[in-house]
């Protein structure tokens, strides 16, 4: 049986006194790819932020376990060092810190080991080439002046460099043109193996093409109202979320 990575149970979370997640349950095991789909405002991005411990969100009830350890109250950096990663919907710009330096500092932080600089540089060059990123981006300040697509590629570059156990991709496909979606999807495929897991938050099916999806969860009004297989992706692309929104309302 695959090792359980993430176990979320009865999760209630709010921001500015407004409840966004209302009793959410989710289990993700190693080797699995989960997709969270739902209409705007359903709580999809909140889920990613809460799993990673964004202090803007308050957990009112419920638990989050990672590899069996209770991380509900743990700080963000500790969760990251356990192997949780999130590709941000709107990655922050950090003037003065180059992409390469940031990757180097982050890699050292998550592994807790000194970095072998030569091997790191070599791997970085290779990964950037695979993502069709110009090498010069490594020396540019993190996300400063990057286009929307370049920012998303930089997020995938970070994921491939840090090699987390669980990668949460929050709307990674938004703002990308067709070619960029294809490249990003290829990067995601490179990352995925039997010992890690993906949690993809999206309302667009394009990024899922070519990925082996195990579970699709429909999130509306802060709860997962339905879980199915990859066949749900086509259904949602065709019919939208009305069916589940209506049943959730009843």
């Amino acid at each position: 049986m695959a090792e359980k990575l993430l176990e979320v149970s009865g999760l209630h979370a709010s921001v500015e006194d407004k409840e966004i997640l209302s009793g959410l349950d989710l289990n993700v095991s190693a080797g699995e790819t989960h997709v969270i789909m739902g209409p705007n405002g359903a709580g999809k991005s909140t889920l990613g932020n809460v799993i990673l411990g964004n202090p803007e969100y308050i957990i009112n009830a419920g638990k989050i376990l990672f590899e069996g350890a209770d991380i509900t109250r743990e700080k963000t950096d500790a969760r990251a060092r356990r192997g949780i990663f999130m590709s941000f919907q709107s990655p922050e710009e950090v003037p003065g810190v180059t992409l390469e330096d940031f990757l180097r500092v982050s890699k050292t932080a998550v592994t807790g080991k000194p970095l072998k600089v030569f091997a790191f540089k070599k791997q970085l060059k290779k990964t950037m080439a695979a993502l069709n990123m110009d090498e010069s981006y490594a020396q540019r300040y993190l996300n400063v002046g990057f286009s929307g697509g370049e920012k998303k590629k930089a997020e995938i570059l970070q994921m491939l460099t840090l090699q987390p156990k669980l990668a949460i991709l929050d709307e990674t496909d938004s703002g990308l043109d067709v070619d960029a979606v294809r490249i990003v999807s290829e990067g995601i495929r490179q990352y995925k193996n039997e010992s890690n897991a993906l949690l993809i938050i999206t309302h667009n099916a394009k990024i899922l093409e070519g990925l082996k999806v195990d579970y699709v969860h429909i999130l509306t009004d802060g709860k997962i109202v339905h879980t199915g297989g990859p066949e749900l992706i086509d259904e949602i692309s065709r019919d939208g979320f009305h069916r589940w929104e209506e049943s959730a309302a009843q």
Binding site: L52, N54, P55, E56, K75, T76, D77, A80, R81, F85, M86, F88, P91, E92, V94, F102, V105, S106, A109, V110, Q158, L162
Partner: peptide, 11 residues
């Protein structure tokens, strides 16, 4: 920005 940096394992 702080959350973003912490999310990459930095204290």
């Amino acid at each position: 920005r702080l959350f973003y940096l912490l999310s990459r394992g930095l204290t």
